[in-house]
Nucleic acid binder design. Structure first.
Lengths: 233, 233
DNA sequence: ACCATCCACTGGTCTATACCAGACGAAAAG
DNA sequence: CTTTTCGTCTGGTATAGACCAGTGGATGGT
């Protein structure tokens, strides 16, 4: 598809600056003498490649550079983004107390029905939403947690107010596609590719003290982790 | 889209076993009284979600479970897959010596034009290709490397034959889409979502001794890493 | 000056159809 | 029995058009 190649070349060559808005699909179709369906296939492919992104019914834009993120590091999201010369933002979408379902009880290591806090937050970089996260903690361990300011580092809060210190974390990641709820929060189309990242934080007794689920825009993240020596590979 | 929901429910409920072939797109279109274009959108969406996958012009199939993979761990690909009760396979696609380009020289820490070995391998799980990898090493450090059997653990080989021991690794990951070459090797359509994983292996002098680039099927992998305690998050 | 309303424009979904290209199996040739 | 040929079935790409549903700016009322 020459259309895709044309645009991909322009973007990679830096002719089009990040954030630039592309012409409407109908205009592109006419300009290149192809169907809108075809334009769409090409755009979606470039989206999958991370070159461009869309905002719901607003248009297509050239993607900004990915942010580096080390899920194993000792820096918070905000710190990490700031170090990269960009502006981080956090919004609390919801906070609630629920009775643990089967899923929550097994992942948090508590009984079904136990009180659990669920905090949902949206995080932005340079004003653009890049991930939604859902934080699960056992309510008993953090009384009154929801009354503290929740748009800051959860780990700092847990440590200073409840004496909960992270000892180890088990991190899982996999590419997936966004379902309705996180898609709406990120302001993208349902089914958009994304990266699912979960982090189970354990204390020194190997008890789960916090469970994070993060849904990242697939084009926003570049995960960097450092590993100590291996014996074989 | 009720079509997508119908199938997604069937697959998640386990009604359709992994590896099961779906009816042809045309048959599905007729059965659900929708267009083939629409069927295709739904199928591609389910593919993005990791529920199903396709083989070039052969049909659509229900995805097998993801394999767990720890890029920071002390186990090789084969060991790790075997532990999960599945069968790993490795095929050498190509091996060659080239003069380092700009890209290779900067990533390997050598001069442009220096001799570099490039080994390309395909790795399978239960017979299904899950990743293609490209291994770059400085030729001077591993004389005759290409004459050794290359379908086994590279790190073992490097250690036993050339005394090269991994001290640290820098790993990067990001979701992307497959370009023509790796797509062909994996037997999937160009533009299919994938996970790009690169691993720079450093020795005790922080010199790069090996550079791996892995292109994973996005629906085949579940990355698991373990992190030692953090101070904030 | 502010706010509510409206409407044009955007992408999102869908119908209907056509032809191309590779995979694969059956039939024909050696 | 093996090899080659060939046709059928698969997905892959494309055209042409229609309507729906939020966004956001212009418009007009207060």
């Amino acid at each position: 598809m020459r259309f895709r190649d044309h645009f991909a070349a322009m973007i990679e060559a830096g002719t089009l600056a990040p954030g630039t808005r592309l012409p409407p699909e109908r205009a592109l179709a006419e300009e290149f003498s192809i169907t809108r369906v075809t334009v769409r296939q090409a755009l979606i492919r470039m989206e999958a490649e991370g070159l461009i992104f869309r905002e719901q019914r607003r248009g297509w834009f050239v993607s900004p550079p990915r942010v580096h993120y080390d899920p194993t590091a000792n820096t918070s999201f905000t710190e990490s983004i700031t170090e990269q010369g960009r502006v981080a933002g956090t919004t609390v979408l919801s906070k609630q107390q629920v009775a643990a379902s089967k899923w929550e009880s097994t992942h948090l290591g508590c009984a079904v029905g136990d009180p659990v806090f669920i905090i949902s937050r949206l995080r932005t970089v340079d004003g653009r939403p890049v991930l939604v996260e859902q934080i699960y903690v056992k309510a008993e361990r953090c009384p009154g947690l929801l009354d503290y300011p929740l748009d800051q580092s959860m780990t700092d809060l847990m440590a200073s107010k409840f004496g909960i210190i992270e000892h180890r974390a088990q991190i899982n990641m996999r590419p997936t596609a966004l379902s309705e709820v996180p898609a709406k929060a990120l302001g993208v189309a349902v089914g958009t590719p994304s990266l699912y990242l979960s982090r189970a934080i354990l204390d020194q007794f190997d008890e789960v003290v916090e469970l994070d689920q993060e849904f990242w825009r697939h084009d926003a993240i570049d995960i960097c982790v450092s590993a100590a020596g291996r014996a074989s590979g």
